[in-house]
């Protein structure tokens, strides 16, 4: 049966859509100027991903192999339209701030990648869980990158939280420092690329540390099993 623990690990870390698969970089780099923008797009992508994964998984035995890609794209587009209309209705300011990048979720390769690689081969429950975990992994990267850029570029965190959470969040903004000369590079596109590279580098360092620890333990274990062959 499906191993849910492995699915979570794959989505959040080992096979993170943004850090490892490097999919969906266009919205990732374009909208992460602030924490809230990143969170908004991340949640929207996650909902689309869950919806499309479940639907693709349900119709996977009805769709002929030759026409599966157009069918997948149409399913994804339908969910993106639903999300877009919901955001237009309930989080109008965030909808304006994210602009073209909400409809562009259709072209996010992470979503069609999961539909093709996972949902079309697994049952609806596993697919929904995979969508949730992949979406969470993507959202986490968007939020971390958005937070980094917002702190460096504007000195604030959670600016515009009311766009996502409504009037209750109006004074959630944390001002860490204020300056007349904001570090514009962090907010401009180069900051997204530098920040993204930095995140990937940090992930690689952590992976290398873990791998180094594991080889140490396996080496010790291997010594017991030495045979004439080795």
């Amino acid at each position: 049966m499906t191993d849910f623990r492995d699915l979570s690990l794959q989505g959040l870390w080992k096979n993170n859509p943004a850090l490892v698969q490097l999919l969906g970089l266009c919205p990732l780099l374009a909208v992460t100027a602030t924490f809230i923008n990143g969170l908004g797009l991340g949640l929207a992508t996650m909902l689309v991903l869950i919806g499309s994964n479940v639907t693709v998984s349900l119709v996977r035995n009805l769709v002929r192999n030759e026409i599966r890609i157009p069918v997948f794209v149409m399913i994804i587009a339908a969910f993106v339209t639903i999300i877009q209309l919901i955001m237009n209705a309930f989080t109008y300011e965030l909808y304006l701030a994210l602009g073209i990048f909400i409809p562009l979720i259709v072209t996010n390769c992470a979503i069609i990648g999961r539909a093709e690689a996972f949902a079309s081969k697994n049952g609806p429950l596993a697919s929904a869980y995979d969508g949730l975990m992949m979406g969470l992994g993507f959202t986490a990267v968007l939020v971390i990158l958005g937070g980094m850029r917002e702190i460096l570029g504007a000195g604030t965190l959670l600016a515009g939280a009311d766009r996502l959470f409504g009037p209750i969040a109006e004074n959630w903004t944390v001002v860490l420092f204020s300056t007349e000369n904001p570090f514009l590079l962090a907010v401009l596109p180069p900051g997204a690329f530098l920040g993204m590279g930095l995140l990937i580098a940090i992930k690689n360092i952590i992976d290398a540390k873990i791998a180094a620890q594991q080889t140490v333990t396996t080496e010790k274990a291997a010594r017991v099993r030495v045979t004439a062959e080795s």
């Binding site: 000369n181 570090f183 514009l184 590079l185 962090a186 401009l188 180069p190």
Partner: peptide
């Protein structure tokens, strides 16, 4: 270039 695009006024 980093300084110019980050702090254009200064």
């Amino acid at each position: 270039v980093v300084l110019l695009i980050s702090f254009p006024a200064a």
